[in-house]
Design a protein around this nucleic acid. Structure first.
Lengths: 136, 136
DNA sequence: CTACTCTTGATAATGGTTCTCATGAACGCA
DNA sequence: TGCGTTCATGAGAACCATTATCAAGAGTAG
């Protein structure tokens, strides 16, 4: 908070690696794990380190540029998403997913929590199933 | 695969280790990880192996005797619970939790999924917050 | 009691994620 | 444009929860 206008947040540095990760994420519809992203980038010829992919996805998640989802296997999966809080309907076979915005459920969750004296609440909801393609 | 009527399900054998785990779980209200259960048992003087605790909790989860919950840190937490499908309201500070039975939400989740052509759906919902004690 | 088989448990292996740290690249500034 | 500071990178090690291994021990049926 100095008087000069140099008070900008450290602002993550712009590297081609981060750009590559962002670009890849914006080109795909499905959830991808860090390792998958890493593999895909290597296949495209981008020699990006695994740790870097992890870091990039992490900071993108913090910036709400991608959504994080913990798979039943315990891996973190990421997908580029619209801003704001929302949830997903995910195909457990192919990973195809749809964003859902359950305002009613959100309100209900808050109410339930408050009824029991809980504060500072958040929630996580995932609906899994088989999409039309995979169930046919 | 003999022809004799020995085809009964193996029926988990009754050991004091499994009994100890079950007993401990029934005495607690909060979610516990396998490692916590293991530590607690050792403190009580029960020399139970870690792998055994994992196995016991796993089979109890399959039998719906305990609920499984994946913590944000990626660990599995277990808590004895009533039978049937339900969700939890969990204090992120002390682990105190309340079962919730959101029939309305369940129906809504099914509807959303079907609307998008998804079949064989399931869902996971956890509401986290601070309980009265921890937020005071 | 015996025999058979499942369970146990110490330890190794697994696998996703994070840490380490030397090297290299970005950015601010002149 | 050149310099220096500082942050990002990446290869590999470390971490840590969980699972597999397998010999030894305990349950159970007969």
């Amino acid at each position: 908070m100095t008087s000069t206008e140099t008070t900008r947040a450290p602002a993550t540095r712009q590297t081609w690696q981060r750009a590559a990760v962002r670009d890849l994420m914006e080109r795909t519809e499905e959830f991808r794990t860090a390792q998958q992203v890493h593999d895909l980038l290597r296949k495209e010829g981008a020699k990006v380190g695994l740790a870097t992919v992890y870091r990039a996805l992490q900071s993108m998640a913090e910036a709400d540029e991608v959504d994080v989802l913990r798979t039943p296997e315990g891996e973190n999966a990421y997908r580029s998403c619209s801003r704001g809080h929302h949830h997903h309907l995910v195909c457990r076979s192919c990973g195809y997913s749809i964003e859902i915005h359950p305002e009613a459920m959100e309100q209900w969750a808050r109410d339930i929590a408050e009824e029991h004296g809980f504060t500072d609440t958040g929630h996580e909801l995932e609906i899994f199933g088989l999409c039309r393609n995979c169930s046919g």
